[in-house]
Design a binder for these strands. Sequence first.
DNA 1: TATTGTTATACTCTATAACTATA
DNA 2: TATAGTTATAGAGTATAACAATA
Lengths: 138, 138
Amino acid sequence: MTIDPLKDFPGYLLHRVSADAMTRLARRLAPLGLRPTEASVLLVIEANPNITQSEIGRMLDIAGANMAPLVARLADRELIEREPVDGRSHGLTLAPAGRELFVQLRNQFKEHEAEILDKLPASRRAAFTKMLRTLWYD
Amino acid sequence: MTIDPLKDFPGYLLHRVSADAMTRLARRLAPLGLRPTEASVLLVIEANPNITQSEIGRMLDIAGANMAPLVARLADRELIEREPVDGRSHGLTLAPAGRELFVQLRNQFKEHEAEILDKLPASRRAAFTKMLRTLWYD
DNA sequence: TATTGTTATACTCTATAACTATA
DNA sequence: TATAGTTATAGAGTATAACAATA
């Protein structure tokens, strides 16, 4: 039979588990007309009214060059509003349509995250998430 | 201060940890002239001489349409050899240059994987990998 | 000088459709 | 009919370089 030489590599497993979760999240969000990165930006704006797009970029590690068209799409769809805070920055807040969408968005994320942990015994889920946090925010 | 509403989401953490690891792996492999997917295919061929590219695709979940140019690049660089096994399939094996590269490749992967787990206490590393395996090969 | 926001561009990985040749 | 391999193409995410306007 064929041998999978990668199946014990945590890096490979992280990649496969993450890629699978991202694909499922994308499918969940498609009916809302959102891609995963757009949805995560909306969650950040909701939690931080008047945040600027450069601050979001630093938080989510999205380069400014990539934030620009992403935010422009959300503004074009009137999901967010931009208010000048000084001559070069704009504070971002959810527009009415964005607040409406946010409720569905939050539910989809909640179900998605539960689905990921679902395969682990309930007693190990918190430990798993904590280890991931250790790896990320070391 | 700004709030990160995603920091407790295992799906988001998986994505960030995985993306960071992939970026570091890509940097490690660049001096060898390989991208992560190319390197993983070489590891699979080394472990399974005469495997076909469709079998590799099923193992690594890479679509046939994407396997074709990937394998062609490796064959053009004479890292692998293709031997017909029937009228439509080719068995893939490492060519001499591929075997030479494989030694360095294996070392880079070993260091990479160790680096990922490095931030976890040694006593938790096996449990973490096992949980990832549970999530992947459920 | 440094930062914010922007445009243009390219790369990697992935996804779909259509096709040929073989089993 | 199903499978192996291929080509063309498009999408999403990311990366770099260059630039204007503002701090």
